[in-house]
Design a binder for these strands. Sequence first.
DNA 1: ACCATGACCTGCCCGC
DNA 2: TGCGGGCAGGTCATGG
Length: 286
Amino acid sequence: MPELPEVETVRRGLEAAVAGRTVSGVEVLHPRPVRRHLAGPDDFAAALSGRTFAVPARRGKYLWLPLTDGDAVLAHLGMSGQFRVEDADHPDAPNTRVRFRFRDGGPELRFVDQRMFGGLSLSPGGAELPDEVAHIGRDPFDPAFDQRAVARAVRRRRTGLKRALLDQTLVSGIGNIYADEALWRARLHYARATDTLPQSAAERVLVEARAVMADALLQGGTSFDALYVNVNGESGYFDRTLDVYGRADEPCPRCGRPIRREAFMNRSSYRCPFCQRTPRAGHVRW
DNA sequence: ACCATGACCTGCCCGC
DNA sequence: TGCGGGCAGGTCATGG
């Protein structure tokens, strides 16, 4: 379950379920999710036996399970990845790809992924911050997140505002849903040119992105269906609280005019045509 | 260097 | 009922 609040919900579930537990065996049921482990599925499985998980960590949408010896299992959920914690006699969910068993004989950890854009790999020395994560920016929940500096970096770009919000190297954790929600809260159009955007507006949309993701986290994240669930298989409830995403033709909660769905960047964008008017020429970048 | 686009996958839903 | 197209919240490699 893709964006920051959903990934953080999973991280918390993993903290409760696997921290301090020692792996007894790993079973790779489909090679694709471990494709980034270049030594191959068998090596991945063998390398993890006997190792102990520490407290799971996250930056943006990347998640990693540090091992007590300083390495880490890096995970990305992609579009449809899930972690599930289930007793061994509990049947596998469809699309179960990797299974971790533990020495204590307690519940298994299963990686489930329908579309397999996500994956797992072993990151040597990655307990603190895996190399594979170093290229992305800090997310808005990071204590070292520098809102003013990120806003300046956004304004140095020559692109549309939503493209910048989705660029994980500038600020991580924001995806299609929360970008639209943040833009609506900040009353900005997705194609607003970043290079003519005032600093105050750039900071405002970052503040709103953080705020909407914090609200979502309180409700266990957003999910529209069974594809996005926490480690117990339960869905979050934030979809009921979304203001614009997925609400084409419904009234804007602020002004009552119908929300519009538009294609942008080969995906859907939702906006209020009144609260988030198309910028005048010279202030738009499609 | 930046920026935009397509590729990578499976499965569901809709209209014909 | 069956089939094709469109759609889905992710990133990454590759062009310009």
